[in-house]
């Protein structure tokens, strides 16, 4: 069997990376949105994916999560050595992939706390961990609520129902912190947040990452660079028209802040 150089690199990356995306092409409604993405993320790394509106940033997050609205036509994605694209949405989540959504839906009548406890214990069970007792669960939730500056009343309400944009974002981070993922993808978490809320959200996400830095990776998808003041990425990628057109260090983000996507 003849292996091309890029395939050889890809297979080597699959083995060591937390996330290895190789030549990913994605369509929705007959239109190609992602046109050959290559990206490797190792444990302990923070990556920022930047780009103008419509460049395909959010699509990438949805494809990783398994959104059925998108079709992968070419390419592969390996997560912790496993074929991510072959896994069901919930299998990806249980394996440690968390995507904080830009527009999380409202689910009327579903108590936020009860939902979260069900999710946490389902995920823990799938990982061979014991379920959290009610007391332990509550004490962890309270710690995170404090960190995020969320009133406890928020978790007694229906899931996201009537939440402001900022409250929904904080609620996403609360879930992320409780679910203890390995790969955390924040999809435009900064949109709709005021400066103070942004700082709380960013610090909490960073804290979760730092807690288990040797195992975790953080991907920040954003249009603006202001969140990168709090979460400093080692790698910044610029997405334009479905392709990564530039990769570099924090300097790339600084240039974008100054000059725009141009």
């Amino acid at each position: 069997m003849v292996e091309t150089a890029s395939e050889a690199i890809a297979s080597a990356e699959q083995a060591t990376a937390l996330l290895a995306i190789h030549n990913l092409h994605v369509q929705t409604a007959e239109r190609e949105i992602l046109k050959g993405i290559h990206l490797t993320i190792r444990p302990g790394e923070i990556h920022a994916i930047m780009g103008p509106n419509g460049s395909g940033k959010s699509t990438l997050a949805h494809v990783l999560a398994g959104n059925p609205g998108f079709t992968v036509t070419v390419g592969s994605v390996f997560f912790n050595g496993n074929d991510l694209l072959a896994m069901a949405i919930e299998e990806r989540a249980r394996a440690g992939l968390f995507v904080a959504f830009q527009y999380p839906p409202e689910i009327p009548g579903v108590n936020n706390m009860q939902y979260l406890r069900t999710a946490v214990n389902t995920v823990r069970k799938s990982r061979g961990q014991s379920e959290l007792s009610a007391a332990e669960f509550l004490s962890r939730v309270r710690t995170i609520l404090k960190e995020l500056g969320m009133p406890e009343e928020m978790v007694r309400r229906s899931l996201n129902e009537g939440f402001s944009g900022g409250e929904k974002k904080k609620n996403e981070i609360l879930q992320m912190a409780m679910l203890e993922p390995r790969l955390m993808v924040l999809d435009e978490i900064d949109s709709g947040l005021d400066v103070d809320a942004l700082e709380l959200v960013a610090r909490c996400a960073l804290r979760v990452f730092e807690d288990k830095r040797s195992e975790r990776s953080l991907v920040v998808i954003t249009h603006y660079s202001r969140i990168l003041r709090y979460i400093k990425p080692q790698y910044v990628h610029v997405l334009a028209d479905g392709k990564i057109v530039e990769s570099g260090g924090i300097a790339v983000a600084e240039r974008i802040e100054e000059k725009g996507y141009g």
């Binding site: 059925p68 919930e90 249980r94 839906p105 679910l179």
Partner: peptide
């Protein structure tokens, strides 16, 4: 809604 809940690990 279902996609969201499954992303959080629910079947």
């Amino acid at each position: 809604q279902l996609y969201f809940l499954r992303q959080r690990g629910l079947s």
